[in-house]
């Protein structure tokens, strides 16, 4: 195998790993609460389970709007920033996260590392990180 092919296959494998945990089909919060073991299937055929206590917390925070919340919530990481910054674009998810963090609800919502830690602690199973497509586009080196 030539070196080119090795790099290509490594890149392909890494991208596959990075995106493998994304849910193949997202479910709404009420649907998940009806299940005995709330879970979604991931693209690699695995199972991602949600903690029932976290689902109940989301339900409590959102109230009537909870039926519009699709889970898992995708937290997109922006690599172009100097510090890891994440962005949440889903409107209902923005409301939930802003209520949990106690910040103003603005869509899209930018989440900073310290807030990410809080999110991970409170609703760790409800969120999933997505590597932004911007990551893959690296600017060409100047000659």
């Amino acid at each position: 195998m030539s070196e080119d092919r090795i790099y290509e296959s490594l890149l392909r494998n890494e991208l596959r790993v990075v995106n493998s945990y994304i849910a193949s089909k997202r479910k709404s919060l009420p649907d998940l609460l009806k299940e005995e073991y709330p879970h979604v299937l991931t693209l690699d055929g695995g199972v991602h389970m949600f903690r029932r206590s976290e689902l109940l917390l989301a339900m409590e925070e959102l109230g009537e709007e909870s039926s519009r919340l699709m889970l898992p919530i995708y937290v997109e990481l922006i690599p172009t920033q100097t510090i890891t910054t994440a962005v949440v674009r889903d409107e209902v998810a923005v409301k939930l996260i802003s209520r949990i963090l106690g910040v103003e609800s603005v869509s899209p919502l930018y989440v900073y590392p310290i807030q990410l830690m809080e999110l991970r602690r409170r609703i760790g199973t409800l969120i999933q990180y997505v590597i932004s497509p911007e990551t893959i586009n690296v600017p060409q080196e100047s000659d």
């Binding site: 070196e3 080119d4 790099y7 080196e141």
Partner: peptide, 17 residues
């Protein structure tokens, strides 16, 4: 090859973070 390696490096670095 360098472009691919740099892309791979960026993906891996983000994941590491």
């Amino acid at each position: 090859r360098l472009a691919t390696a740099r892309r791979l490096h960026k993906v891996l670095r983000d994941r590491l973070l």
